[in-house]
Design a protein around this nucleic acid. Structure first.
Length: 573
RNA sequence: GCCCCCAUAGCUCAGUGGAUAGAGCGACGGUCUUCUAAACCGCAGGUCGAGGGUUCGAAUCCUUCUGGGGGCGCCA
């Protein structure tokens, strides 16, 4: 099955044409590499290339002449019907209609693997995403990472990578200590003791509920338990909450990697030793080149000697603390150890999906890997901006450390999983997302989720009607696809853009492009659907068969897209 | 102060150096005896935040500035 994007096919033809032209001396042989600007959809033909303009200087000829020469030397092929030159030097391509309609058969043959690419060539890719601290229920801000990460994983699989999904379970560190102490306080409060929640403790109601359950189960039997016991308990309960929430939006991980394992295996301290042995660390109360002000502040706070990573040697803005003066590592050290672990597990590539507030952290990890001789370029990071929720016109920002979180579960209760999957994916990760709860449940063409799924439903409706009216399953097998008219072919051309969208989304790690494309496809679909009937007295049987085949292919394509986004594919509304 | 991101139609947003910058919504006007109208058709709408630069060609690349968001902890 060959689903090479059409622009790539045309670029290959152009390359060959240029070589042919050079062999016949109509274009000069050149030392430098010919630049091939991307072939793009065109208003005039189906696709267009600006290759002649891009290489005018190189070939020392007028773009218009170069374009003519290239067009003349295009090798014979089944894809292109004709190529015409337009000023100032564009080459416009018209696709061969019989090639175009024939793709319907390939799509149906490919079924759920339709438009799969083989860019990854089976190489191993880890996508790490969500990785929320198990300190509270998953909230809407974190869910963007879940949606983007999962869609990325699905996209990369469709592009030929062998994908492993991982959740870094951050159960070490000070935040977890705070969680344990917070639950302990809530438990004692539930017993009637006058205990204050620790400063910077977790204020969410879920800990009050959890404490209440502990009292119901054990009465005052936990009064003398340590905060560590409360931590382990809270961690397990909360983790199960997070896992269940993710399941509700169709997100699953292959492995939950425990941060604590990095301590138990000694990986954290080995990483420190390696960094120190390579002379990338130093002990000091303040970082090297600290300002007088900083030194004064450290003195004032009575800071002891910490272990610092000289990350500035690798381009960092300032050195980072690896081990606090109390002997406990900061998050930086286990993070580096974790990424070493990832690379040593043999992954060819690693993608981390993080909130933009983790930008510095992701940089420092890379500096650490570089310092120890690992190939940091194997690690890519998708940083996403924040999620805002609008409910009844009011905008609320989620934050775990304050009380004003919006649990993802509550949003799922309200909208179901699909609007969350779509709206949180369908923006460039560089931009904030505003998730409008009112729009998410709206049943109209303003709501892209319903609009897109309705396209799938309409296809399903046709297939169902065909079955109900007693036509045999292979009724359309011998359909003459050349009967399809302009509207069908125009829509089919839009379908055939999907491979190039997948490749672009893959190359730029931008799964949101799939969401955009799907909406565009739906917008092309519905107008055609109005015009292009299958089971209607005015439609001759031969044409009905051909159209049915197109709708079969269309349904598969929408199903593929919805599945890539982790959305449901309803048969009926 | 330093770092990252953003600024495109009234609104929400696409647009990884190419042709006259695109969609949807909203506004206005139409369409249901046909596979579900949760739909469709028509019409209107622009100083691409501002200035400078690179280029045959810039919304796109470089630079300065303005305005927003985020990050700058011995938290993660």
């Amino acid at each position: 099955m060959n689903f090479t994007p059409i622009p790539t096919r045309i670029e290959n033809l152009i390359s060959t044409a240029i070589k042919n032209a050079q062999e016949s001396n109509e274009l000069p042989a050149v030392e430098q590499e010919v630049t091939l600007p991307p072939v793009k959809p065109s208003k005039i033909g189906n696709y267009a290339s600006a290759v002649a303009m891009a290489n005018a200087k190189l070939f020392r000829q007028k773009p218009l002449d170069i374009a003519q020469i290239i067009a003349k030397h295009l090798p014979s092929n089944e894809l292109i019907e004709k190529a015409e030159v337009a000023p100032p030097g564009f080459i416009n391509f018209w696709l061969n209609p019989s090639w175009v309609v024939e793709q319907i058969n390939y799509i149906i043959e490919a079924d759920e693997n339709v438009f799969s690419q083989n860019i990854g060539q089976g190489k191993r890719l880890m996508v790490e995403f969500v990785s929320a601290n198990p300190t509270g229920p998953l909230h809407i801000g974190r869910s963007r990472g879940a949606v983007v990460g999962d869609a990325t994983a699905r996209l990369m699989e469709a592009c030929g990578w062998s994908v492993h999904r991982e959740y870094y379970f951050n159960n070490g560190g000070r935040q977890m200590e705070m969680l344990g102490k917070s639950l302990q306080a809530r438990y004692l409060q539930a017993l009637g003791d006058s205990v204050e929640l620790p400063e910077e403790g977790y204020q969410g109601e879920y800990l009050i509920d959890m404490a209440q359950k502990l009292v119901e189960q054990h009465q005052d039997g936990w009064r003398n338990k340590s905060w560590q016991d409360f931590k382990v308990y809270a961690e397990n309960v909360i983790f199960e909450m997070i896992r269940a929430t993710l399941e509700r939006i169709g997100v699953r991980h292959d492995l939950y990697f425990n941060e604590l394992d990095l301590y138990e295996s000694n990986a954290v301290w080995e990483t420190l030793e390696k960094l120190s042995a390579a002379n990338h660390t130093y002990k000091s109360a303040t970082r090297e080149n600290a300002s007088a002000e900083e030194i004064e502040r450290a003195k004032h706070k009575g800071e002891g000697e910490a272990v610092w990573f000289r990350s500035t040697a690798f381009g960092d803005r300032e050195d980072r603390v690896l081990v606090r003066s109390n002997g406990e590592p900061t998050y930086v050290l286990p993070d580096i150890a974790y990424h070493i672990n990832k690379l040593e597990r043999g992954f060819d590539r690693i993608i981390n999906v993080l909130g933009a507030d983790h930008f510095t952290e992701s940089q420092v990890v890379k500096y650490g890997l570089t310092a120890l001789g690992y190939d940091a370029s194997k690690v890519d990071v998708i940083l996403h901006q924040m999620v805002f929720i609008i409910k009844d016109g009011q905008e609320i920002k989620g934050s775990t450390r304050k009380g004003d979180i919006i649990p993802l579960d509550e949003v799922i209760d309200e909208t179901g999983p699909d609007p969350i999957r779509y709206f949180l994916l369908a923006r460039s990760t560089d931009n904030d997302v505003t998730f409008d709860l009112d729009l998410a449940v709206e049943r109209s063409n303003e709501n892209p989720v319903f609009y897109i799924q309705n396209a799938h439903v309409r296809c399903a409706g046709i297939l169902r009607q065909v079955e109900e009216r007693g036509y045999p399953a292979d009724w359309d097998a011998d359909a003459d696809l050349s009967l399809l008219g302009n509207e069908e072919r125009a829509f089919l051309l839009k379908i055939l853009e999907m491979p190039e969208v997948m490749v672009a989304a893959h190359d730029t790690l931008s799964p949101y492009q799939l969401a955009f494309y799907t909406l565009e496809l739906a917008r092309a679909f519905h107008p055609m659907y109005e015009q292009v009937r299958v089971l209607h007295s005015d439609v001759p049987e031969d044409l009905a068969k051909a159209r049915l085949r197109l709708y079969k292919a269309t349904k598969l394509v929408f199903k593929r897209l919805l599945t890539l986004m982790g959305m449901n594919t309803p048969e009926r509304m």
